[in-house]
C-alpha cells in the first residue's frame, strides 16, 4: 500500500505507475492543517475523474474527533474509494461511530449500504490493547493496521532498526486480525535509504503473519513484493502437496503422504494459501504489463 500525500497533484497523478497493490491517498498527517479543504477537493476530484485500473484505492481521513473527519467522509464516501482508513483508532466505539457516518452518507448519496470498506489504524497503547474489539467492530473492516510513529510516541520510546518496541503491538494486531478473519497491515519503514533494514523488517512481519505493509516511497515496492511473493522452491513443494492430496482423493483414501511424511490439514491449507498468493501476484504483474 503506497502512501500518497493528498495535496500533491503530481504524486496523485502518478501513483498507479509504481506497481503497488493498493494506493492510499492521505488527508491526515501529510496535509498541513491550512490545506485540509484543498486536499479534500483534490482527492475527491482525482477519485471521480482519474482511472487507476484495478488498484485498490484507499483514503486516509482525519479522525472524527479532530473536527475534520466528518467533512472528509462527506466528500470521500461519495467519491467511492474501495476503503476508508480511519486513523488513531483507540476502541471499537471509534469504528462504530465512523461506520454510522459512512452508512448515513451512503443512504443520502444512494450508494448501496455496506459498499464502502473500512480499515482501522491502531496508533496508541490503548488501541493495541483493544485490538481484538476493534477488529471485530464492523463487517466493513477489511483489515487493521499498525501506525507506529504515534504508537512509539505514546510508549515514550523511539523506533529502532530492529523494531523491538513494536513486538507487542505487532503480535496483538496480527492475532486480532486473524481471529476476526481480516488482514493485518504493517506500518511504514521510514528510512527509505536503508533497503537492507527494510527487507529484514518485511521478512519478519511476513513471518509473523502480516498480509502486507505500507510504503512511503515507490522504491520500497519491488523489494516488498519480492519478500511477499512465494519462492519457486516453496511453490514446487506446494504443488507437490496438492498433487499428493488429489492422488489420495482419487484413490479414495483420506490420508496422503509426500516423501514419507503425512500431509495433514494445516499443511494443505498453507500450500493452498501459497498458491493463491502466487496466482494473485501473477495477476498483478500481468495487469501492469
Amino acid at each position: 500500500m503506497l502512501f500518497v500525500p493528498g495535496n500533491n497533484p503530481g504524486m496523485i497523478r502518478d501513483a498507479h505507475i509504481y506497481g503497488s497493490d493498493s494506493i492510499m491517498f492521505d488527508l491526515e498527517d501529510s496535509v498541513a492543517i491550512t490545506e485540509k479543504d484543498a486536499a479534500r477537493f483534490l482527492v475527491y476530484n482525482a477519485l471521480t475523474k482519474l482511472h487507476y485500473g484495478k488498484k485498490e484505492l484507499v483514503v486516509r481521513i482525519n479522525d472524527l474527533s479532530s473536527g475534520l473527519g466528518i467533512a472528509d467522509l462527506e466528500a470521500i464516501v461519495r467519491a467511492q474509494p474501495d476503503v476508508i482508513r480511519l486513523p488513531k483508532t483507540d476502541s471499537a466505539k471509534d469504528v462504530i461511530e465512523c461506520e454510522r457516518e459512512i452508512e448515513r452518507i451512503e443512504r443520502e448519496a444512494g450508494i448501496p449500504v455496506g459498499k464502502t470498506g473500512m480499515m482501522a489504524a491502531i496508533e496508541s497503547a490503548n488501541g493495541v490493547l483493544n485490538a481484538k474489539e476493534i477488529a471485530f467492530a464492523s463487517k466493513r473492516l477489511i483489515g487493521i493496521a499498525l501506525g507506529a510513529e504515534d504508537y512509539v510516541t505514546d510508549l515514550k520510546t523511539t523506533r529502532s532498526p530492529e523494531g523491538i518496541e513494536l513486538m507487542f503491538a505487532r503480535g496483538m494486531i496480527v492475532n486480532a486480525a486473524k481471529a476476526a478473519g481480516i488482514m493485518a497491515l504493517d506500518t511504514v519503514y521510514s528510512d527509505v535509504n536503508n533497503e537492507e533494514g527494510f527487507v529484514a523488517e518485511a521478512t519478519m512481519i511476513r513471518k509473523m503473519g502480516f498480509d502486507g505493509k505500507s510504503v512511503i516511497n515507490p522504491r520500497q515496492i519491488a523489494p516488498l513484493h519480492a519478500v511477499f511473493t512465494p519462492s519457486e522452491k516453496d511453490l514446487t513443494k506446494a504443488r507437490a502437496i496438492m498433487d499428493a492430496i488429489a492422488e489420495a482423493n482419487a484413490r479414495g483414501s483420506g490420508v496422503a503422504s509426500l516423501k514419507g511424511k503425512m500431509i495433514d490439514k494445516p499443511v494443505v491449507a498453507r500450500a493452498q494459501y501459497l498458491l493463491e498468493m502466487a496466482e494473485r501476484a501473477k495477476t498483478i504483474t500481468v495487469e501492469e504489463i
Partner: peptide
C-alpha cells in the same frame, strides 16, 4: 501543467475560501 481534475479542485477550493 495541472490535469483538468486538479484545475477544477483548485478552482473549487479557492472559490469556497
Amino acid at each position: 501543467g495541472a490535469l483538468d481534475c486538479t484545475v477544477a479542485a483548485r478552482t473549487s477550493a479557492a472559490a469556497y475560501r
